[in-house]
Simulated scan of single mutants.
Amino acid sequence: MLSAEKHSHSLQVDASLIHFIKGKVGSAQKRIEEEMAVKIVFPSSKNEESIVIEGISTDCVTRASEKIQAIIDEAIKTNLDYSHFVSLPLGIYPELVDKLVDFQNSILGINYVSVDANVESDYNEETSDIKNKGQELIEGDDVAVELKAEDDNHVKVDSTSIPFVSYPPKPPRLPNASDFGIDKTIFIKPATFHLTVLMLKLWNKERVNAASDVLKSISSKVIDALDNRPVSIRLKGLDTMRGSLSRARVLYAPVEEIGSEDRLLRACQVIIDAFVEAGLVLEKDAKHKLKLHATVMNARNRKGKRQSKNDSFDARGVFKQFGSEDWGEYVIPEAHLSQRFVYDENGYYHCCASIPFPGKEACKM
């Protein structure tokens, strides 16, 4: 006979993972409870980050814990979105923010540059021609119509003297940004402009604290990699990260280190290696080669319509207008452990931890 004594185990689980354990309409939770003779108790408030597994034996609780952990691991690999990232802030520079605002306003304006440069000129010529034809109709010869009364109830009109008038077609509509899959939501907010060093999935406070500690612990190593000198970058032009220009998903400004010493890349690699060694980076992410980039448009950020993995926009017109844009030169002030979707008072991503770069005091903060 099984003992009536209850056994329990507490498992730390972030709120973002709870629905994976419950499953659709509670199906996953019910299956685990029935198969392993346990009861899963979920947090009663958002401030709690642990679930409790109760069972009539240690073995039942252990097997249920292992099953739940397997569900969590799979969810983290395949379903859970990135929650944090290591960033190099650039939105601190007012002149750069102004350029980004002008960039967005120009593209979203009613006179958006079409892929075909002849569209606007054709439009002007055609509307001008239509206007002239309309003027001719208005200023043409007077038309005389002869009315003949045959009797008290009928009037005969001599239509042979009435000319046939054909009205000009309506002018074509000048294309705008929405015709190319572009709307305000796919632009990066200027105040959050940054370079991305490393994407992270930190699903509970324990991992966030661990990541913060890792970043702070390597401050001196990062400064050494920079030779204890300020590092500046130049942003110029545009390029696409995924897909062609006609079906772009991410459009970014390429980054060039001033001086071509690769000090910034070495410093970033120090950061990446430290997070990998601490076990805070997923295996697939650890294999990615670092590509410093400053994203300006991302189709994944689109709101107001159903998302799809293949969502894209036509960037050919944007590239024609801004493909050679000189965004300027800037000193990198520091590295942040940033939290996605959460913002501080300055409009930048919430900073969980940061380390200064040489020359930070000279930057416009």
Rank of each mutant, 00 (worst) to 15 (best):
L337A: 05
R207N: 09
L337Y: 02
E33N: 09
V101G: 03
V113T: 12
R247S: 13
N298H: 02
L200A: 06
F180N: 03
A37M: 13
K170M: 03
S260K: 15
G237D: 04
V208F: 08
I56Q: 11
I223W: 05
D326C: 02
V101N: 08
D141F: 09
L90I: 01
L280E: 02
E146C: 12
D59T: 11
I72F: 01
S83I: 03
T127Q: 09
Y123V: 03
V255W: 00
K77A: 12
F85D: 03
D158E: 15
P89W: 03
P333F: 06
G91K: 09
E126Y: 11
N79I: 07
V52H: 06
D239F: 02
E206I: 12
H336I: 08
S354M: 09
M36I: 06
E261L: 09
R207F: 10
R263W: 08
G26V: 04
H350L: 14
V342Y: 12
S83G: 07
S16D: 13
D98R: 14
K320W: 06
R316E: 06
M36A: 06
V270D: 10
L88V: 13
G243I: 05
D116W: 02
S87R: 07
D151F: 01
T62Q: 11
S50I: 06
R300C: 07
F103I: 02
I21N: 00
F180Q: 05
P190A: 13
K6S: 13
N301V: 01
C268N: 06
N346H: 10
R340E: 07
K201Y: 05
I162W: 08
V318Y: 04
F341A: 11
Y349L: 00
R340Y: 14
I182M: 07
V342C: 13
F85C: 14
A4N: 11
P333I: 07
Y82D: 08
F20E: 13
D151W: 08
D81G: 12
F193R: 04
N105R: 15
I223F: 10
D285Q: 07
L292D: 04
F20I: 01
A248R: 08
R306G: 04
V296E: 04
D273W: 08
V61W: 03
I272P: 00
V13N: 03
K39D: 11
R63W: 03
V41N: 05
I218D: 03
D213E: 15
L174H: 10
D151V: 01
F187W: 02
I272G: 01
D158C: 09
G23Q: 00
A75Y: 04
A144G: 13
K131I: 11
M365R: 11
N124T: 10
S232A: 13
M297T: 07
A15M: 13
D262Q: 15
K205R: 15
P163F: 03
